[in-house]
Design a protein around this nucleic acid. Structure first.
Lengths: 225, 225
DNA sequence: AGCCGTACCTACTCGACAGTAAGTTTATTG
DNA sequence: CAATAAACTTACTGTCGAGTAGGTACGGCT
């Protein structure tokens, strides 16, 4: 229950709403990430933020509202961090590389964000799951566009339609692998972001290569039940 | 809050402990999977099982005990289902294929199991996370062994040591992709298990191919900060 | 100075839920 | 047909935590 704010001065300074809201969100992300949505208590959030409970209710609303605010803020931060590095105009593999690298570097610097965004946000049926799905959907679309445009430029461009479908599932698998790798990283922090990004690229780029060459793995002929 | 047990007969038959325990576990898996560990209430579990609360405490112990029992049972069922199909002695790609296929077929037939095993079990710091990590660790070891043995048999067998390391991270990415694909499937049930398994293989097998050929993707020379 | 709004607090209510005490009913076996 | 044990119940306790009522203190403005 680490204190996040409050100067050394005993005086609880009177701060403008904007600042307090930021502090409360910081504390909330930290607490939600540590215990999960249900196990987290508003009392602990308020204690961590160094402020009393009614302030939270006055500024950010109910516990659900607070959680939603956390997700929205962290999602924005993540998307901005990625967009800042994966500039369009680069070759496809470099675009993907810098995007992936930015992703892992952000997670590395903000593990709490990822925990809240991915682990906690997916555990609900309500509006949180929708918010969470948005992240995944955007990422998949982004990657799929990359894959398909790269495949279109290759010498086997006549595979068009099939590549489109395969490209989309490939993108889903890629994003999934990224999410799981990030999850795994939370429990195994000894690796570097760059390392993880390279591993991603090694798996992913191989799939891209086969897609561009039209190579597909096929299951063995039916011999099972 | 679907009733899981209880015959049409109004008489609440008196059943042996063994049977009740199974019914309670069934109900618990369903409830935990629906709401998550914290939001699930023992009252709902007992109602779903069609039995009164003290029976649960008498047979299975505390809420934590009950949850742990769920995880253990579902994990066993999953591992047995996979081991039943991925027989050693098959060629590596078929072993992997049948293993992956069995995995997705099990998940498809037991979505609640997967939810409890993967989503809920990972949200804790206690003994549950350890239990969950066991699943992942076993799966990674299994896949890594496959990859490395396959690479050893290829014409580039001299890449030995490097392949070992790359093979392990490849296995981690593969398992991660599988987990995420399964998670994604919970929210998008329109696909078939066979379809998902084929998608997995397409990504995975491409990575295998590159590994065997010693091809590695490398990041562009440093030009960023 | 005195007024007003906003930052901020202590101290409660009230409902939900884990866990239990203490009993009642049914099958079985000597 | 006892009598014993196991299956099963209702009806409670205690706690924890979301949300609030009803304030106090501090700064800006005229």
């Amino acid at each position: 229950m680490e204190l996040v704010n409050e100067e050394a001065s005993g005086r609880p300074k009177r701060l403008p709403r904007e600042v307090r809201e930021r502090q409360i969100l910081d504390a909330a992300v930290s607490v939600f990430s540590a215990h999960g949505y249900h196990a987290a208590s508003m009392d602990e959030v308020s204690a961590t933020a160094g402020i009393s409970k009614p302030m939270i209710y006055s500024y950010l609303g109910s516990k659900e509202d607070l959680f939603a605010a956390c997700i929205r803020r962290e999602l924005d931060r993540l998307l901005v961090a990625i967009a800042d590095r994966a500039k369009p105009g680069l070759p496809a593999d470099q675009q993907l590389w810098y995007g992936v690298l930015a992703f892992f570097e952000f997670i590395g610097a903000n593990k709490d964000s990822w925990s809240v965004l991915h682990r906690q946000a997916s555990e609900h049926g309500g509006p949180f799951a929708a918010e969470h799905r948005l992240l995944r959907t955007r990422a998949i679309e982004l990657v799929a566009a990359l894959v398909i445009s790269a495949a279109g430029r290759s010498e086997h461009s006549e595979i068009g339609a099939a590549a489109q479908r395969t490209g989309e599932s490939l993108a889903a698998a890629v994003v999934g692998a990224g999410e799981s790798l990030a999850d795994w990283w939370l429990d195994n922090p000894q690796e570097s972001a760059r390392h993880l990004a390279e591993r991603m690229m090694n798996v992913v780029w191989a799939g891209f290569g086969n897609l561009m060459d039209g190579k597909v793995w096929a299951p063995p002929p039916e011999a099972d039940e």
